[in-house]
């Protein structure tokens, strides 16, 4: 590859890395989705450069598909964000850390917990699923009442 191509690949990698940093560090749901779109830009630039290097239109064709998927992703993700905002009245991603498995440690640092304002009923609007399968148990504790196929409704 020539130096000219190397520079474009480097810019693509830089865009990808910037998006990754934003994705990892920001706490606003909207900013997280925007950062993932920035990562897609980096990949698109890399694919276009590769296509030019190989004298082929495949890179650009593939980038058009990426564009399609990115548009779908943005629409669906923003609908999800609106739904989450409806139930929580906050865009803070850390409010959703309760969705983890019960035996995992909290991802929130102790000093950050104070600044997180917890709404009254964060999971009020979420539809309830019919219980099915085994009742999950915390690590270390034996399962107390494991009923085979049908579990009692909670």
């Amino acid at each position: 590859m020539t130096i000219e191509s190397q520079r474009f690949l480097l810019v693509g990698a830089g865009l990808f890395i910037l998006g990754a940093i934003g994705f990892l560090t920001r706490r606003n749901l909207i900013m997280i989705i925007l950062s993932s779109e920035l990562m897609l830009h980096g990949v698109a630039l890399t694919m276009v450069t590769f296509g030019r290097m190989h004298n082929s239109n495949e890179g650009q064709a593939f980038t058009i598909f990426t564009l399609t998927v990115a548009a779908c992703e943005a629409g669906l993700a923003l609908a999800l964000v609106l739904t989450l905002y409806r139930s929580n009245h906050s865009l803070d991603i850390q409010l959703w850390s309760e969705l983890r498995e019960p035996d995992l440690p909290s991802p929130i640092d102790a000093d950050e917990l104070d600044s997180t304002v917890r709404p009254e009923n964060p999971y009020g609007g979420i539809p309830k699923l019919t219980p099915a399968g085994r009742i999950p148990t915390e690590a270390g504790k034996p399962a107390s009442n494991v009923s085979g196929g049908k579990s009692s409704t909670a």
Binding site: R27, N28, Y85, S90, L91, D92, Q94, T116
Partner: peptide, 17 residues
Amino acid sequence: LAQQSGAVAYDQKSSHS
């Protein structure tokens, strides 16, 4: 539609930067 008015705490801080 979803942004609260004024600066909110979770925009002023980043986690594990």
